[in-house]
Computed example of a mutant assay.
Amino acid sequence: MVARIQIATAVLVREGLVLLAHRTPLREAYPDCWGFVGGHVEPGESPDQAVRRECLEEVGVQIHDPLPIPMTVDNPALDMRGFLVTRWEGEPVIAEPEEHDDLRWFRPGVLADLNLAHPENLLNILNAVQRATA
């Protein structure tokens, strides 16, 4: 049995808006679509450590108190761990332009209209955002 690829991703929420990064069209996996900040869990890292590192590398923010949220992925090769993040230091920017070509804040109600990397997570994301903003 082949080991699943571990992914850690952050759902950053500010003032009721959700941050998404647009993956460049040249990306091998899930090109030209919107996704959450995150990436591979490296050997020796926990998903919590990975999501902290990825947020710093990809958007230049140091996150605090990431809360686990359920994630579902249709790709059986992936093991995705999600984290809700409502506190961080710094202002998100595109820190890795070879990975992302746009960064935007979206109202949760429009997420279903976007070309998402993992649309199967939409309900879990909306529930987490609703809890965070309640």
Rank of each mutant, 00 (worst) to 15 (best):
T24Q: 10
P47K: 05
R87Y: 00
A128M: 02
R81T: 02
R23T: 14
M71T: 01
E42T: 08
D79P: 00
Q130I: 05
M1F: 14
I63Y: 10
E89G: 02
L56H: 13
N127F: 01
V110G: 00
P25L: 15
V11N: 00
G109A: 07
R81P: 00
L12A: 09
P108I: 00
A10F: 09
A128P: 03
L17Y: 13
H40S: 11
E91A: 08
L12R: 10
W34N: 11
N121E: 02
C33M: 13
W88S: 02
P70Y: 03
P31K: 14
V41S: 05
E120K: 09
E98S: 08
T72M: 04
I94G: 10
T133D: 08
P31W: 12
R107Q: 06
R107E: 06
Y30A: 12
E28D: 09
A132R: 04
V13L: 06
N127R: 06
R53G: 13
V11K: 02
Q6Y: 01
V51S: 05
C55G: 12
R81E: 05
G82H: 00
G90T: 14
C55Y: 13
S46V: 11
M71P: 00
M1I: 06
V61N: 13
Q130L: 04
L103A: 11
L103Y: 14
A10V: 04
V18F: 06
A134I: 08
L26N: 09
M71S: 00
Q130K: 02
I5G: 03
L114C: 07
H40M: 11
L103Q: 14
W34D: 10
H22E: 08
V110I: 12
E89Q: 02
L26S: 09
T86P: 00
V85D: 03
G16R: 05
T9K: 12
Q130Y: 07
I5C: 04
Q49W: 01
G39K: 13
R131T: 11
L56R: 14
A29E: 11
F83W: 15
A117I: 06
L20P: 08
D65Q: 07
D79M: 06
